[in-house]
Each structure stands twice: as C-alpha cells, then as structure tokens.
Design a protein around this nucleic acid. Structure first.
Length: 578
RNA sequence: CGGGGCGUGGCGCAGUCCGGUUAGCGCACCUGACUGGGGGUCAGGAGGUCCGCGGUUCGAAUCCGCGCGCCCCGACCA
C-alpha cells in the first residue's frame, strides 16, 4: 500500500449521491474525468477484470449441443453507414457519438454492435453447418446520454459484454435465448447481485421477446411491477394489468355542458363533481415523430384515457408505429388550438385521436368542452366521438391487478443489469446476411443479442455488498484475497514476520494487499474496512509475543488469534467459508 | 431540452448579500519529534489562473454581461 496508486479519502466528494459512488471514490478506485466518464484506478480495475472473468466463464460454458460463446473484438469506430443500413442512425438519434475523419467521412463510436457483428458474420459464414453461432466481445461503448447519473450507474463511456447469437430458425433462437437467460442468472448470482428477470420493451433494438435483469433498489431509474402471488415481473413500460370497466352497464345519458371555473385537473374536476376519477376522460397531447429512409415527420396526436390512469409512452409509441413520442409543450398546444385543462375529443377534427381501450368501453364520462372553464357530462365513445386508434396505452401502477392472477401488484424501482433480446431477422435482412440451408436455399440468420454493462454491475455489487464502514467484496470479486496490516512495524520482528507471511500467502496462491505504511492503527483498520477484502490479518508486537497473528473476516466476525505457524491454512479456511 | 443547486490549493468548506490589508479554516500532503489496537499529539512547512472571457471601478473571489463545467429532479434512454 505504500506504493499503491489511488489514496483513500476521509471526506466524500460533495457531488457523490449514491453509496456505491461514494465508496468507490473514497476507496480511490475510480477517478472522475467528465460527466459520465471515469478512469479506473488499480483496485477498481482489478474488480472490473474479475467481473469480466466470471462473465467469460459463463459465456463460454458449453451448451447441450456443444455451442459456446466465442470471444472476439470489434472496432469501437464504426462507419456511419452501418447504422444507416439498419436505420438506427435515426432511431437512436442523439445518443450516437458522431465524428468525421479528415476525408470528411462520417463515423460513429459504437453504442451497441448488432450491425458490426452481423456484417462480420456475413463475411465469414455461408452455410447452415456453421450454425448455431454465438459471438461476443467485452468492449467499450459510447452513448451520448442526455443525463449521466449515479456515478457508474449511467455512463457515456462504458464497458459492455455484448453477445450475439445466430441461428437457422426461431426454434434455434429460443435455445440460444434460454442459454443466455440462464447464463445471466449465474453471472449475477456469482457477483452477489440479486436480480429479477422482467419483461421489457425492445425499443430501438427491434425484435420480439426481451427480458431485463433488474436489481431492485430505491436508486433505480426503471420502474417495474411485480406480482407477489404468481411472480409476474415486468418493466412498467410494458406491464399489463387487469383493465376493468367501472361504468360500462350504464344507459347512455344526454350530453350536458357545465361550468367548471378554474378546474383544470382531473383531481379537481372529480372532487368538484363528487365522482370517482374513473368517471372522467383525460386528454393528453403528444407530438409523434415518424421516420423512414427519406427523413422524419412530426404529427400532433390527441390521447384520450380514463382519468384515473396515465399514458404509457412506450405502448403509445408502439401503437402508433412512431420512432418517438414526446409530451407536447405549451407553445405547440396553443398552435394546435388545444384548451389545456378543458380539452376532449368531442367535436375535435383534423387530428388523430388515440384512445385507450377502457375509455371506449365506459359510459357517461365527464370530458372537456374544448372551451375554457367548461366540461361536458355523459360523453360516450361511438356516439359523441370516435377514436382513430384504439389500443392499450395505459401505464401500469402499483396496486393494479396482475393480468395472470388478479393479485394487486407491487411497484418497485430497479436498475437494468442486463438485457436479452430476440431480434429475429431484422439485422440479417438489412445486411443481407444469408446462409444456405440443407436444401440449398438462402435464408437470413435469426439473431439474438445479449448485453451486460460492466461498470453498472460494479456499482450494483457495491450497492448490495457494503456496511457503514465500507465495501464487502464477494469472494470471487475481491481485488485481493487477503489484507495484511502491520502495527508498530518498526518494532522487533514485525516487519520481517509480515514480509514472510505475505510471501507465504502468495506462494499458496493467494493475492495479498499489504498495508506496510507507517500509519496509526485506526487509519489502517478503517482503510481495511473501507477497501473490503474478505480477510484481514494483523501482525503486531502484541500478537508476536505469543507467536500469533490476528484474523478478522470482513463480514463482521470477531477478531481471532491464531498461531503464526498455521497462518496460511487459517486464512484459507476463512476464505473458503466466506 | 425544462427546473434546481454548485464552481475558492488534492478533498470538504468559510468569505460573495454590503467591493478595500498578505484569500481563511479542517482534512490530506512534506520535515522532525513524540506516540502506537479503530481516522493520535506537538512544532515547522509547501501548495491558489478564487471556472473562463469581457465589462464597471482608484480597487473585483465579491457587482454586471456572456460563456463553460459539475451534481440533483424531470424529459429521454440500445
């Protein structure tokens, strides 16, 4: 430690908010470079390497039919036309880091590598005999995130393990997907991070099935719904729930315009009228963005949804086939002639109306009159207004009933540790990555893609494995196996004994962090706790007088005095137990 | 992109409202001594474009303008 680069800090840098960020900074394991960009110091890098070792083992674990992940390395610098061919130069939009070389050729720094893998696949595979194939890399990705956050949780430059599977058909893809799904559970288990696999949105990836592996934590940025009864788990973006009408049986009543001065929210309106929020129809305005090879086009859309629910923007996007939907700002609303607070689809023309399924089945809802301070009672879909698109666009929330078993669901926050996608043939077709099947027919490869963010995983490992004093590294990830501390090293025999012990431990195959600094006991013990190695060994005159050393396991055990002669075996047994 | 906070030695902060000696404190760092089982004590020391540029002024860390950067909330998110 007298030579170690990266000092521990007693005070936490003020801009660290999450515990993992604070501990990694205090431990001298990371150094901030720019928003969402970090340098990894020696201790931090050792853990990153160990995480990667675990991932490599699990990616290369042989499947039932002998398939394994094969590691390779793609370029980070990618000609922009790769992303143009898949259309993702548009769908990924501003997230793409772009640059131009001195010949004016455009490149991107790869944010994810489906395009590059499928192109390399195409150049090297012609026959079904080469399939299935699983290729992966552990490499740096670049994403110009609008808002990096939480230390290592959301970065603009990060290391990712990305694996891509290539199969002859959907059944093969299912097998690859299951293999990776299982491998991911093992990776997170070994890293000491509990995860919940949840149904997710495939977003700009395209494709069908996709699961996210969520680490549940209050500092998470994703919201998910969990059924405590049947185990259903889904990101709020895609979560389904039981949608029941509340007023379907009523006889349609006559329209009636009423005065509602100053009442602009559903809350106020329902309170004023003494009706449940489910008796109202909420109006929301969005700008939808559509895009294809020729460019992008914007269109204002009107959303009608029952007053007690909110719009799920991912579902809305999918229902419209838009590449983006965004909440309309006040300027655009004024231009479109909407009366915010008193709007409805009744009498509305020249704009697409998207209605949630429930709102079309209810009867006699209170809706806006499209005039300030006026609302209409008893509006009914089909009679008073008609939607252009009817779809499930409602956002699931805690307490809503599970679609499988009608149990009220819990809503939790989580961080996405990894995601697995069934991509299908989208990329193979865009890149004409065909192989010849047994009948000599050309077929596109059926792909899957599977990613894990390495630094984000590191952050979650620290979030999950710590106490008030510092980090508690899981056995497989600790930067060093043993932390040897000397006290009063200038006194007779202490330094010599510690030097020899370190040598013996290393000869026994253990890695050792040796605190040989001339610091007070308090400083050394506190640093040992902060840095979090599983076993601490103290060599001091007091113990030496009895030919002993002292052991302490980081997980909170008591100090134990053991004979110096057994030191190596004793350390090993503590490590094996942990 | 909208809202909020912040920018003064490596870290944490005071000073800024109300302009005026040499910009201060704690931690860390260097030298020496003492000390030695949970961030010890004393003495001496080094270290500063006060985020940048422009302006106001006899005089700017402090006032004004324009930028830049960092953090948080939201929007967004493969």
């Amino acid at each position: 430690m007298s030579h170690l680069f990266g000092k521990t800090l007693r005070q936490v840098p003020a801009d660290a908010e999450t515990e993992s960020h604070k501990l990694l900074l205090r431990g001298g394991m990371i150094t901030p470079i720019s928003a969402g960009v970090y340098a990894y110091m020696p201790l931090g890098l050792r853990v990153l390497h160990k995480i990667q070792d675990i991932i490599r083992e699990e990616m290369e674990r042989e499947g039932p039919d002998g398939r394994i992940g094969q590691e390779l390395l793609m370029s980070a610098l990618v000609p922009i036309d790769y992303y143009e061919r898949s259309g993702r130069d548009k769908t990924m939009g501003d997230i793409l880091f772009r640059l131009t070389d001195h010949h004016d050729r455009d490149f991107a720094l790869g944010p994810t590598h489906e395009e590059v893998f499928v192109e390399v696949f195409k150049r090297n595979v012609q026959s079904y005999r080469d399939l299935p194939l699983m290729l992966y890399q552990i490499a740096t990705k670049f994403r110009d995130e609008p808002r990096p956050r939480g230390g290592l949780i959301r970065l603009r430059q990060f290391i990712m393990k990305d694996l891509y599977s290539f199969d002859v058909d959907n059944a093969g893809l299912d097998e690859s997907y299951q293999m990776m799904y299982a491998a991911y559970l093992r990776v997170f288990e070994r890293c000491g991070v509990p995860v919940v696999p949840a149904l997710a949105d495939s977003g700009a990836m395209g494709g069908s099935d996709t699961h996210e592996f969520l680490y549940l934590t209050e500092i998470g940025e994703d919201r998910c719904l969990l059924c405590p009864n049947c185990g259903y788990a889904a990101n709020a973006e895609v979560a389904t729930f039981v949608k029941e009408t509340a007023h379907e049986g009523e006889e349609p009543a006559a329209l009636e315009e009423i005065d509602t001065p100053g009442l602009t929210t559903i809350e106020q309106l329902a309170d004023h009228l003494g009706v449940p929020k489910s008796k109202t129809c909420k109006a929301v305005f969005y700008t939808a963005v559509f895009g294809d090879e020729s460019g992008t086009r914007e269109e204002p859309v009107f959303i009608a949804i029952r007053g007690d629910m909110d719009v799920n923007e991912a579902k809305l996007k999918n229902a419209l086939g838009a590449i983006e939907v965004r909440y309309m700002d006040e300027d655009a609303m004024r231009k479109a002639g909407f009366v915010a607070g008193s709007a409805s689809a009744v009498g509305l023309e020249d704009i697409r109306v998207i209605a949630d399924t429930l709102v079309t089945e209810e009867r006699n809802l209170v809706a806006g009159a499209n005039k300030a301070d006026k609302h209409i009672l008893n509006t009914n879909h089909g009679r008073d207004w008609t939607a252009d698109v009817v779809a499930d666009i409602a956002l699931a929330a805690g307490g809503m009933l599970c679609a499988n078993c009608r149990t009220p669901m819990d809503e939790r926050r989580g961080i996405e540790m990894g995601q697995v996608f069934k991509l299908g043939t989208k990329y193979a077709e865009a890149f004409e990555a065909y192989f010849l099947d047994a009948e000599g027919k050309q077929r596109p490869a059926v792909m899957g893609s599977y990613g894990i963010g390495i630094e984000r995983l590191l952050a979650a490992i620290v979030e999950e494995n710590r106490d008030e004093a510092g980090i508690i590294w899981p056995r497989e990830l600790t930067p060093f196996d043993v932390h040897v501390v000397t006290l009063k090293a200038n006194e007779e025999g202490v330094r010599e004994t510690a030097d020899k012990l370190v040598h013996d431990l290393e000869a026994a195959g253990l890695s050792v962090l040796y605190d040989d600094r001339d610091e007070s006991p308090g400083v050394k013990f506190n640093d040992a706790d902060l840095l979090g190695m599983p076993v601490r060994v103290t060599v001091s005159p007091r113990n030496l007088a009895e030919n002993s050393i002292e052991l302490r396991v980081r997980t909170g055990g008591e100090n134990e005095i053991v004979p110096l002669s057994n030191a190596v075996d004793e350390v090993r047994s503590r490590l094996a137990a942990g």
